[in-house]
Design a protein around this nucleic acid. Structure first.
Length: 250
DNA sequence: CGAACAATAT
DNA sequence: GATATTGTTC
């Protein structure tokens, strides 16, 4: 493929308390033909989101202290505005990554960022559309509520999913009924794929990392197959009530 | 042989 | 349409 479709002018909001790194990010993102806004604190960024909701397509937020601020903007952006949010940090240990992924983060990037990584982040915007279109999440609010229930309370629900701290650890007796890839389960899948890297992400290794009982290699293989083949089709979709015209890049 | 990848079935 | 199963290659 010598031609590539590209969504120019996608609105990206960057939040980082380090001014010089904000400048670096801005330069890199502009090179990727995004429309960039930067803030060095969560409070001002928040009010910008409230005022310019329709022009923010994606948020990239640094994991600074206090981390409650990062969690706050993550939850608000995802649940209230439905804006995909990417967390970046220099610390990339597995438990931290999983914590933010299960709280709604679309991705977790490790500093320093390479421009190749930023080129592809627009896909998160469309990933949301894929989820909506394909009903990968049958009911996001329902799933989000689930993560606040105890394990025993969850087990009584007909979702047949066991979980811990918002993490799915077991899928119960799904040998009879078909597996449903809930948003939580899918996030863990994506997190596992990301931690492996695109080339190393094979079903067996994904399964090992996800640590979900009763989940099979075949089920992951099937999911992986559909994710890979439908990834780029949704370029032409509406993104949050706004059409992003794809442009052809050399 | 087991696993990945691809195609097809349910 | 989403996941399971089968088939083929590595």
């Amino acid at each position: 493929m010598d031609q590539e479709l590209w969504p120019s002018g996608l609105g990206v909001l960057v939040i980082d308390n380090n001014f010089s790194y904000l400048k670096v990010m801005e330069e890199l993102l502009i090179k990727c033909s995004y429309k960039v806004t930067t803030y060095n604190n969560v409070r001002e960024a928040m009010s910008f989101i409230y005022a310019n909701q329709q022009s923010v397509d994606l948020i990239i937020c640094d994991l600074f202290f206090p981390t409650e601020d990062t969690l706050l903007i993550l939850r608000e952006a995802t649940s209230k505005f439905g804006i995909p949010t990417v967390i970046m940090s220099s610390n990339g240990d597995t438990s931290t990554v999983m914590k933010y992924i299960t709280n709604g983060a679309s991705d977790f990037l490790i500093k320093p960022l390479r421009i190749e990584e930023l080129k592809n982040i627009w896909q998160h915007v469309f990933r949301k559309q894929i989820g909506a279109e394909h009903r990968m999440c049958n009911n996001v609010q329902h799933i989000d509520q689930l993560s606040f229930r105890t394990t025993e309370a969850t087990a009584t629900l007909d979702s047949e999913i066991r979980e811990n701290n918002g993490m799915v650890t077991d899928i119960q007796d799904l040998r009879k009924s078909r597996l449903i890839w809930t948003m939580q389960l899918h996030r863990q899948f994506i997190a596992a794929v990301n931690s492996l890297g695109a080339d190393k992400a094979v079903p067996k290794k994904i399964l090992e990392i996800m640590k979900v009982k009763h989940l099979t290699r075949e089920q992951i293989a099937s999911h992986l197959q559909v994710i890979n083949s439908f990834w780029y089709i949704y370029i032409y979709l509406l993104v949050q009530d706004k059409y992003i015209a794809p442009t052809v890049v050399a």
